[in-house]
């Protein structure tokens, strides 16, 4: 327990100290992207890792919040109004999305979320009077809470870090709460949970709302970071990237989505510096992770590390090593 706490404190210290160590804007911006996408990945992980529900439409929820911010600002309101409206609007959209998607579970759930996500994308693309279509909407200013400007990469990083830490704390509290335990129960044995007196649908619905809330928070940060929103941010590759972040690091773990976000953002930035074939890379990583490391990078590396350690000491793998090769916390891939 104390070593875990020490690791968390060390992690926070590193994140806070980061801009002092690497002062170039380019790297600070990448760090901001990692943190804002990590919030998105956490949101997806609530469903994928803890509810066992794989969503391929979350970029739609992310995008709705971003579009609300852009539209409210364009209508002449301030940042507070825009952010509150985006959070409320994001929750309402999530509720509708969840009510439809939760008619089903398993593979059909994936299909429905994909279709819903594409419909939201289609709206962003064609509802030109609201979204300005393919040209997108620009946001010209960033908020300045308590007089602290977020205009600089440094200021934006600090704000994103605070939001990220709050999101992590919320997630940590949620997953160890009674409701979080009930959610994990519905993932493993929905029928038994029902017989024990739990309202399985409502538990999933509430988890969906939490997931949509985190996605909205991330979408708000995204539109301020880029100072721009266009349908591309809502398209299927964006949902796929979010899902990849959630499972690449290890679904159903607290730090997996953060690792996954770092992986995807770094690869995307490194790759796009050399070639423009980002979607190809995204697809290839997806296939590779699913085929070779279905439990995700964090548990997968732990497993490989253990196996190597054992091999070095000349011992055979124990059954529990093999057992842990199945996805921990996440759905069976």
């Amino acid at each position: 327990m104390s070593s875990r706490r020490a690791a968390i404190v060390a992690g926070i210290v590193v994140l806070v100290a980061l801009p002092f160590v690497i002062s170039e804007d380019y790297y600070i911006n990448i760090a901001s992207q990692i943190l804002l996408y990590a919030i998105f990945a956490l949101g997806i992980d609530v469903l994928v890792g803890y509810a066992g529900l794989v969503s391929l439409g979350h970029a739609g929820l992310f995008g709705i919040a971003a579009y609300i911010v852009a539209n409210v600002l364009a209508a002449g309101y301030g940042h507070t109004v825009a952010i509150v409206a985006a959070l409320i609007g994001g929750l309402i959209a999530t509720a509708g999305f969840a009510a439809v998607a939760l008619r089903s579970v398993g593979i059909t759930f994936i299909m429905i979320t994909l279709a819903l996500g594409e419909i939201i994308w289609g709206l962003a693309y064609r509802w030109i009077s609201v979204t300005n279509g393919d040209n997108g909407i620009s946001v010209t200013t960033r908020p300045a809470p308590f007089g602290l400007s977020l205009a600089s990469p440094r200021g934006f990083y600090d704000a994103t870090l605070i939001v990220f830490l709050l999101a992590m704390a919320a997630m940590a509290i949620f997953v160890s709460s009674p409701l979080g335990a009930a959610l994990a129960g519905t993932r493993d044995q929905p029928r038994r949970m029902n017989a024990l007196g739990y309202h399985v649908w409502m538990i999933r619905f509430l988890a969906f709302l939490f997931s949509g809330f985190l996605s909205s928070v991330s979408g708000i940060l995204f539109v301020y970071y880029n100072e721009f929103i266009s349908p591309q941010a809502l398209a299927l590759p964006a949902s796929a990237a979010g899902l990849l972040m959630a499972i690449a690091g290890g679904a159903g773990t607290l730090f997996g989505p953060v690792v996954g976000s770092a992986l995807v953002v770094i690869v995307q930035n490194v790759v796009s510096a050399y070639i423009t074939r980002w979607n190809f890379m995204l697809g290839a990583i997806f296939v590779a992770i699913v085929v070779f490391m279905p439990e995700g990078l964090v548990p997968g590396s732990v497993r490989f590390g253990r196996a190597i350690w054992r091999a070095a000491r000349g011992r055979k793998p124990t059954p529990s090593d093999r057992a842990s090769a199945t996805p921990i916390g996440g759905p069976r891939l």
């Binding site: 794989v54 994936i110 499972i247 995204l282 697809g283 290839a284 296939v287 699913v290 891939l333």
Partner: peptide, 15 residues
Amino acid sequence: QPLAQVLVTLGVSLM
């Protein structure tokens, strides 16, 4: 592993 299969088809579609 239906879930893995779906995700692989997703990855291939992006590629």
